[in-house]
């Protein structure tokens, strides 16, 4: 692994942790090289003179796409809950979470 990667191993390990990915040391090495390549590609933009250019939020320049506040049917609860690994009292049953978000 080259010393000059744009991302450090620690940064990649941190991002993996935020994404709840459990990576092996070998995988962290591999993704450090790959993700650094992605970052380097994006960095080529830095060579451009972008003074006065507004960020593009939408490729077509659309703004204010909204819908009226009108009720539409929801989906059937039985159908929804049938997709869940575990259900109790018509609710999704999940492992205890750490702290309140």
């Amino acid at each position: 692994m080259a010393e000059s990667e744009s991302l450090s191993r620690d940064e990649v390990a941190h991002v993996a942790k935020l994404a709840l990915l459990d990576l092996t040391d070998e995988e962290i090495d591999l993704f450090t090289v790959q993700l650094s390549g992605v970052i380097d590609t994006a960095r080529e933009m830095n060579a451009l003179d972008l003074d006065g250019v507004q960020p593009t939020h939408h490729p077509l320049g659309l703004v204010n796409v909204m819908r009226a506040d009108e009720l539409r049917p929801s989906i059937d609860r039985d159908e929804v809950l049938a997709q869940a690994p575990a259900v109790e009292d018509d609710r999704f049953k999940v492992p205890p979470a750490l702290g309140e978000a």
Binding site: D69, L71, R72, P73, S74, L81, D89
Partner: peptide, 24 residues
Amino acid sequence: STKTKLFCGCANHFGSEPNTNVCP
């Protein structure tokens, strides 16, 4: 207190039966 949720047409209503105002 809108009639529907922020990004879909499900009812914005307190006190409905659990998981009845849901959509994809």
